[in-house]
Design a protein around this nucleic acid. Structure first.
Lengths: 326, 326
DNA sequence: GCTCCCAATGATAGCGCTATCATTTCCATC
DNA sequence: GATGGAAATGATAGCGCTATCATTGGGAGC
């Protein structure tokens, strides 16, 4: 930076200001500085900048998994907002483990992030402790938070499950089951909505719920379909907590010669790319996950520049995709 | 750090050494230091460390896309190796654009990365210029590089395409087409292999190749299937450059009442999770993408500690998954 | 008992920036 | 021509660490 300053016939501080697009530098001087910088191949050093300014320009992002398209789409949304403003994402994947979440967050403290984006609202007490003590603003992703003292952008998972439940009831199914894996808070909320819808219709039977803690996958969907039909052959509709499982069940129905939706209706959650194209196509809940990333990043950037958002929780809703499988 | 040193009755430099697990600090002193640090809630500052040591502990990772499972799996592999060693990934997605790749790399220079992992071996000249001038070691991902002066971990995309071509020929198909989108170097290499295989069998017809620059997707697969069959209704087998397209074609065949593989055989590339479960299941090439991430990270870590790898190129091969669709 | 050496510890001086507080320049105003 | 104030620029002192070189203490070897 000293070399650039010397080359441009000015002082270091003006070079520093020019590179941060400060309005304090005249256009003429800026031009001289940037051409000197280009000539010398100067690249500013973020570590030094972070140290001197106490702003790291890092945003820590904690999500459960990258294998799950849902969170990757959210990351993409976040990045479109943060990237152009010079912020760098530090991505951590917790693998759905609250302990790993805590460990990652503690490690990220070394980077003194300026902000934190974290999936979900349920954390270990120690994790919440760090978040509260953190000087950096935090926005919770995916779920709408009940706590008004925190910021969140997402959708009501419960209402999504409720919408599926209502849809199946409206279609005339009467022996409707629920199948869940992973059992993270969002999955459980979907089951909650399903239960409400069925209870309202007088169709709720607790035994028709199957919950396993295993990681969601297509093959698990097939397996759980079998288990469900073995025990309750009269099942006429199944709500799977996500599209992976539902797709596995759908393919398995094809192999077993179970015709969907005549013999059995199937519904999923998330609207993964494949779900619109399977035969039959899969009824599901489309979630605005990219938009969640965009809005969460914007809210965070607002908080970083000292603005108070209009309201702490941003509900981006969902869309029921009624397709052939129901 | 000064507070921790004072609290533990020692000097800053010993605290610094203890946190970097230097063997120069006695066990007794280490214990005292860590308990003081825990008590005071001390967290080291990476920016200051990077500035003083000239090692950022950042590894820049450039991939075309995060929406594509292939690269996400590679990221996961990289992270399992880098994370425990204190390195942080800086992830950049180029969106398959060489210009964006250049822009991202230039931005990443500000973070003075200690190493670079970059997908593919074909870059803009300006990008290659940066890589060469970069003090940090670089490993290329996914493809095996022809250039012996560079490091790479991946598989031969050409041989993968060749394996599919040979398989289709061996199965007795004679009017075999190739459908490609995206047209990145890996896609083109697969087409190259396909061509070789068909030429050897005397079955190659240039007009049976359909290449479009559009982004790959399931719906594009369906569309390109239609275009191919409109023009060449006698086609008896199609090799799609990736599983997304092949899946779209497969689903579309179901809708159009084309029976696979009796009327038309389909093959893809990459073995995405869904491909083993569709009805019929999809013949494809399984690529070791997670392992590519692991091995590339290991090679990079080796280079960082001054080791010269046994050989600059690590070919992790692939597996032909012969399934029902052929 | 002396020397030598190594393991353990410490003092000092920056790393490359930016916050802070000057200082200078220039023009509008009276 | 003097004055005030805004716009533009500059000098200085750190930010929180680590590289480098110096120092200390104690045990092995003679």
């Amino acid at each position: 930076m000293a070399d650039v300053a010397h080359h441009a016939g000015t002082s270091m501080i003006s070079v520093s200001r020019a590179f941060r697009h400060s309005p304090l530098v005249s256009e003429a001087l800026k031009t001289r500085i940037f051409s000197a910088a280009t000539e010398l191949g100067y690249v500013p050093n973020r570590a030094a900048s972070a140290l001197a300014s106490a702003r790291s320009m890092n945003i820590a992002v904690l999500i459960p998994s990258m294998t799950n398209t849902v969170f990757v789409d959210t990351l993409a949304g976040i990045n479109t907002e943060l990237g152009p403003r010079g912020y760098q994402m530090l991505i951590g994947t917790t693998d759905y483990s609250p302990e790993e979440e805590f460990r990652l967050l503690r490690t990220f403290l070394e980077f003194s992030p300026d902000g934190l984006l974290i999936a979900g609202a349920d954390h270990l007490p120690s994790t919440s402790g760090i978040i509260e003590k953190l000087a950096a603003p935090t926005v919770h992703l995916m779920e709408i938070d009940a706590d008004r003292s925190r910021y969140s952008v997402g959708l009501s998972q419960t209402e999504g499950g409720y919408a599926i439940g209502r849809h199946l009831v409206a279609r005339g199914y009467t022996r409707i089951g629920f199948v869940a894996a992973q059992l993270d808070p969002r999955t459980l909320a979907r089951g909650e909505g399903y239960r409400q819808a069925l209870q309202e219709a007088g169709l709720y039977e607790p035994r028709r719920e199957l919950r396993v803690p295993d990681r969601s996958s297509i093959s698990l969907g097939a397996e759980l379909l079998d288990r469900m039909l073995d025990e309750f052959p009269d099942t006429d509709a199944l709500f799977f907590c996500n599209d992976d499982l539902a797709q596995g069940a759908l393919f398995h129905c094809q192999r077993r010669g179970i015709s969907v939706p005549q013999d059995l209706a199937l519904a999923g959650f998330n609207d993964l790319p494949v779900s619109a194209w399977t035969v039959p196509s899969l009824t599901t809940i489309a979630t605005p996950r990219y938009e969640i990333g965009v809005q969460a990043a914007r809210m965070l950037l607002g908080l970083l520049s000292g603005e108070q958002p209009a309201q702490p929780h941003c509900d981006l809703g969902f869309e029921l995709k009624t397709r052939e499988s129901t």
